[in-house]
Design a protein around this nucleic acid. Structure first.
Length: 862
DNA sequence: CGGATCGAC
DNA sequence: CTATGTCGATCCG
């Protein structure tokens, strides 16, 4: 038993291995070496129930890896080659589209909580300390880190590593206060900066920098020791300025405080810096580095705390950079492709945000450790991981990331949970559950949220976690409402464990499935506020409103909402967009938030016009009373067309066809554009042209033989362009149209993707009608387009639902028949796959099947 | 929709 | 004695 245990534990111990930080354990300093640290941790860990559970989790990961390796062993070189082409195509497109125009900064306060505590209590300054509780630490100072004391480590283990460790309970209010001081400074470099937590934020410095270029020197001059005057203003505004005659120009790498406390940020001589006698003016340059130094300088002046920063062309790289010269340092990757490549080359994947412990281990099993490995194995990875995952990998290995900082949308859930000493009595458990519901309901009501899904989370004394959820029809928010649901779930769990009591160490309650703005209005049956938020036109203003006021719930973050989609679709169909505004509130009404004013103006508006206009389908009706009108809107909102006059939004389609000769290199001339509008010509040719231009620029001379098809439906030009780059064969936003055309056109390389057998291989310079499959060897584009138009008009376009359109082909070609919308033929499934949102920062997740965890589930709570 | 898992702070 | 709390995303069934 023992032997076997040892053998199994050995490889798993990696999970507990301590990772030495870059700046740890400098020679001559007090501390522990890595081996000692690991031994102490192991001794304190082994045999605990926590450890048992960790081992079990580790085993599960190992099983996933095993499955993955087995999958890998069954791959043929053929498959890999094919995948390689696909992946490379994505990589090529991404590379072409690389945006090097932005300068993103990630700021990160050094050991934030610990630093604040040390600042406010001089006794702590030269002692190892950490902030947290006996059971869990949230951060430690740099002295404590030499002993291996880290965030997310239980206090009792930290004490074993470092008996002298002082553990300070957290003061979140204080941290929040300091944080907002810091944020005031950040806002001056990017008013739209994105805070990730109290001590971290992303900024887009691009705009600041271009302005900064024209700034006079005094706007970039600051005084040391002036942090107490509400803000260290640029010199020009200062009256009591001191000896600005000899400004200190900053040198390159050592920062302003470097000479005073380079290795010991905790022990800095803040008194001296503060003392007025030391006041000096410093001038910062106009470069990025200087600007960021200036920002860090001001943070330190104001708070006596240091920050580190990373500067890069995108958020992912900036984040990695900010870690590079921490603490109290900064690092920049130039906006230059080669610089990025050099940086990425040996970067361990674990460093990149989104790659955690598990992903690291899985990739390690495939001998992927650095970003270079990640790139080299891209084809393999695309076959072993989910689409979102491998595409994320490709992004990472190319050093790509989000190039803009955007605030998150509305919250999706709210929860509270508590850990406690073992609890077995059902009575107690119900009581606790109610208490949690009470707390949660308070929080929910603070934000005015109601949700339809209640989830409870239970953790065993053996650390097994299980969650149980229930979705109810009417949204809940009060303690009673939530508890009514939570109680049911809890009861079911208690009953399930039956004679045995539940032995819990944690319980949590979560509410999700919030009503969105529309649904809220809907629920209130308040048509006035509905109209208020539904003013057309606001979504056309190029996202300005978003940035300007992210807190404006009424109009702001609802970009992707059902309502806006409908509205946008409708707007696009109407030639004169101005016309839409008639009958709605005027601009200033939506703009100002003075409630009474807008309310009345809306009411008047509705009152004075006996004619109602549905804000969703824009149907006008004069005979309605408000009740009928509301009913109509309800119907419209629920997704079914409330009016038969509602036109199909799928009026336009445009197909881009590239016809390539076999094994011939593609030249720009080979690319033909066919506009196959169904019933109406495409309205927005400008963006279509942009799209074509892109494709043409993008083909270069690849040897890949393929046909691309892009369907352009309703208003989504932009997003289609963006997403089509991600994956060529999934780009059609309207699967029906895409498939029906694809089937006769697609010819993806010689041995590649299976095609309908009747499709003859394309010949060079030949046009094939996407509808009737007719081949025309005379390359007359206009004639061809005319033919396609005619052909399409013969086809009957039927609107089945809001989302599906079926084209009945006049040509009885076998592969065209059948309803393509629902279940359809095998190899086309990809075409129908709905794309994920085109976000860059996706945490990786795996495709490999979940381990049959039946066993563990059955044994849960035993 | 429900449940599990990952990842970040 | 003693291993957090909260949130979003993703994947699978």
């Amino acid at each position: 038993m023992d032997n076997k245990q040892e053998a199994e534990i050995a490889p798993s111990n990696e999970a507990f291995q301590f990772r030495m930080g870059l700046n740890d354990n400098k020679a001559g300093m007090e501390g522990l070496d890595k081996e000692k640290i690991n031994k102490i941790i192991m001794d304190a860990t082994k045999g605990s129930r926590f450890y048992d559970n960790e081992l079990k989790k580790d085993q599960q990961v190992n099983q996933r890896i095993e499955k993955m390796m087995q999958q890998k062993s069954q791959l043929t070189s053929q498959q890999i080659r094919k995948a390689q082409i696909q992946v490379d195509r994505l990589a090529l497109a991404l590379e072409k589209n690389r945006d090097l125009s932005r300068i993103i900064v990630h700021v990160d306060m050094d050991a934030f909580y610990a630093a604040v505590e040390m600042r406010d209590n001089p006794e702590l300054k030269d002692k190892p300390m950490a902030v947290g509780s006996k059971s869990m630490l949230s951060t430690s100072n740099y002295l404590a880190r030499r002993f291996g004391v880290r965030a997310a480590m239980p206090g009792f283990i930290a004490k074993k590593l470092c008996p002298a460790l002082i553990i300070v309970p957290p003061n979140f209010d204080k941290y929040r206060a300091v944080s907002s001081e810091v944020r005031e400074i950040l806002a001056q470099y990017d008013p739209n900066f994105l805070p990730m937590s109290l001590d971290e934020a992303y900024l887009d410095f691009t705009d600041h920098l271009s302005e900064r270029l024209s700034w006079t020197e005094d706007k970039r001059t600051f005084i040391i020791g002036a942090e107490n005057s509400e803000e260290n203003k640029p010199l020009s505004g200062k009256q009591e300025q001191v000896e600005c005659t000899s400004p200190i120009l900053f040198e390159d790498s050592p920062s302003f405080v470097a000479d005073q406390n380079v290795s010991q940020p905790g022990q800095d001589t803040t008194e001296e810096i503060r003392r007025p006698s030391l006041e000096k003016a410093v001038v910062f340059g106009t470069s990025v580095e200087e600007a960021v130094k200036e920002m860090r300088f001001r943070i330190e002046q104001k708070t006596t705390l240091t920050a580190s920063a990373g500067i890069a062309p995108n958020t992912m790289l900036a984040k990695v950079c900010s870690d590079k010269n921490k603490p109290n340092g900064q690092y920049r990757i130039a906006n230059d492709r080669q610089a990025i490549k050099d940086f990425i080359k040996d970067l361990p994947i674990r460093k990149v945000p989104g790659i955690g412990k598990v992903t690291e281990k899985m990739l390690k099993a495939l001998e992927v450790v650095t970003c270079t490995d990640l790139y080299q194995q891209r084809a393999l990875l695309s076959l072993l991981f989910s689409e979102t995952s491998w595409q994320n990998f490709v992004h990472i290995s190319l050093g790509l990331g989000s190039t803009h900082v955007e605030r998150d949308g509305e919250r999706k859930s709210m929860s509270t949970e508590r850990t406690f000493s073992e609890m077995s009595s059902a009575e107690e458990q119900y009581g606790l559950c109610q208490e949690l519901c009470r707390d949660l309901s308070k929080d929910l009501q603070k934000e005015g949220l109601k949700g339809k899904t209640v989830t409870i989370k239970l953790k065993n004394v053996t650390f097994e976690v299980r969650t149980r959820a229930l979705t109810v029809t009417s949204p809940v928010s009060t303690e009673e409402e939530i508890f009514a649901v939570a109680k049911e779930i809890l009861k079911a769990e208690i009953d399930l464990a039956s004679p045995e009591p539940l032995q819990l160490r944690l319980m949590g309650v979560r509410v999700s499935g919030f009503l969105n703005e529309e649904e809220k209005k809907h629920h209130q049956k308040s048509i006035t506020s509905f109209l208020h938020s539904g003013k057309p036109g606001s979504s056309l203003s190029l996202g300005q409103s978003d940035k300007a006021d992210p807190s404006a719930l009424a109009t702001g973050p609802q970009r992707q909402s059902f309502f806006n989609q409908k509205r946008a679709a409708r707007e696009h169909m109407v030639q004169d967009k101005q016309a839409l505004c008639s009958g709605f509130v005027s601009d200033d009404a939506t703009k100002s938030d003075s409630e009474g004013k807008t309310e009345t103006s809306v009411k008047e508006n509705v009152h004075q016009r006996p004619e109602f206009t549905c804000p969703i389908c824009f149907l006008k009706e004069s005979g309605w009373d408000i009740a009928t009108f509301n009913k109509h809107i309800d119907k419209c909102l629920s997704g079914s067309p409330a009016s038969s006059e509602l036109e199909s939004p799928y009026k336009e389609g445009a197909v881009m066809v590239k016809t390539l000769g076999s094994d011939k290199e593609v030249q720009c001339e080979d690319i033909q554009y066919a506009d196959v509008c169904t019933t109406k010509p495409t309205e927005d040719t400008r963006s279509l042209d942009a799209f074509n231009a892109f494709v043409i620029n993008n083909t270069e001379t690849t040897t890949v033989q393929h046909v691309e098809l892009h369907i352009n439906v309703d208003q989504c030009q932009q997003s289609i362009i963006a997403t089509s780059l991600k994956n060529e064969y999934k780009m059609a936003p309207e699967p029906i149209c895409a498939e029906s055309v694809m089937e006769c056109k697609v010819n993806l390389g010689n041995e590649e993707v299976a095609l309908p057998s009747s499709t003859a291989p394309c010949e060079e310079q030949a046009f094939i009608c996407p509808v009737c499959n007719l081949r025309q060897n005379t390359p007359d584009l206009t004639a061809f387009n005319r033919h396609v138009d005619v052909c399409l008009n013969k086809g009957i376009i039927q609107k089945l639902t809001e989302e599906t359109v079926v084209i009945n082909h006049p040509v009885p070609s076998s592969q065209h028949t059948g309803s393509i919308g629902r279940g359809s033929s095998s190899n086309n499934t990809k075409l129908r796959t709905k794309r994920p949102a085109a976000t860059n920062q996706n945490p990786a997740s795996k495709k490999s099947k979940p381990n049959s965890s039946k066993n563990t589930i059955d044994r849960f709570f035993k």
